[in-house]
């Protein structure tokens, strides 16, 4: 007979995980799991439900920002602190399905499901996110780009629970955006997702930049070569075009019934140009005020 354990504390969850390991599937909001189960992709014998554990929920803003793994997309979107300190993540969570999906779906679930189209991952990568993992015997912190290792694959070890996600706050002189391109933004898998976080000096020089994408390869990634192309520039056309070319070269999007790979690459390039324009505009408005 199948089993369903609803843990009330982290210790209880870790204890169950240490006993059953991979023979037990962690369930947060279940929005991915229930569909995978229906289509027959998975057939777990035992669920460990973690949504009731209070200490896995919530947003802590101190020197660093910690987001509990079962914090819902709706809570992220509604958080005044995150709207100010991590607006890219807020925009990304706001595109994860409709209201119902955002109430049930969690940030930790979006990360651990590790879909190539996971909307929150680009903004998290741009904010240098770290994931905090715990098992009954150990604790570790891993960079998000090392945690997501491939299409629907993470480096989570047997018995580990994702406890929290740590992100860097947006610096005072920085701007960020998340651009999701799809037939319509809510309720659709992104054709292209692109996050940019950028700091521009009063003289208009790019002092820091992070560019990350989803839906254009087997896993979301930071586009380091594109970042290098505009770092130190004043976002002149030439620098931007170089970044576009680096970004589209690094992308390896799918060719499927929804869009061709060539189209996705073109859209990705335009998304970067748009994102940089929006950030530059935000920067100018800030300088004027």
């Amino acid at each position: 007979m199948k089993e369903f354990v609803s843990a009330q504390s982290i210790d209880e969850a870790l204890d169950t995980l240490s006993r059953f390991g991979d023979d037990c599937l962690i369930m947060a909001g279940g929005t991915d799991i229930m569909i995978q189960q229906r289509t027959g992709d998975i057939d777990p014998r035992r669920y460990l439900h973690i949504e009731r554990i209070e200490s896995l929920k919530g947003i802590l803003v101190d020197e660093k920002i910690l987001i509990g793994s079962t914090t819902s997309h709706h809570s992220i979107v509604s958080s005044k602190n995150l709207q100010r300190l991590c607006p890219g993540l807020v925009s990304a969570s706001a595109t994860v399905g409709g209201w119902q999906t955002q109430e049930a779906g969690t940030l930790g679930g979006n990360i651990c499901n590790a879909s190539p189209a996971a909307d929150t991952i680009p903004s998290l990568l741009a904010a240098n996110a770290l994931v905090h993992l715990k098992s009954s015997s150990a604790e570790r912190t891993v960079r998000l780009d090392e945690f997501i290792v491939g299409r629907r694959m993470t480096s989570r070890l047997e018995g580990e629970l994702l406890v929290a996600i740590e992100v860097e706050a947006l610096p005072a002189n920085a701007s960020e955006v998340y651009i999701k391109v799809g037939p319509r933004s809510a309720m659709e898998v992104a054709l292209v997702g692109l996050a940019v976080r950028i700091s521009i000096s009063p003289l208009g020089i790019v002092e820091n930049v992070a560019i990350a994408t989803c839906s254009v390869g087997p896993k979301p990634f930071r586009a380091i070569a594109a970042e290098t192309a505009i770092l130190g520039s004043q976002l002149e056309d030439e620098a931007v075009m170089n970044a576009v070319s680096e970004l589209t070269q690094e992308a390896s999007p799918m060719d499927d019934f929804r869009a061709s790979a060539r189209y996705r690459k073109q859209v990705l390039g335009s998304a970067l140009v748009n994102a940089l324009n929006i950030c530059q505009l935000q920067h100018k408005l800030r300088e004027q005020s």
Binding site: M27, G30, T31, M34, H49
Partner: peptide
């Protein structure tokens, strides 16, 4: 409710 586990 179609994608919510009853036991949850």
């Amino acid at each position: 409710s179609c994608i919510m586990a009853a036991h949850a």
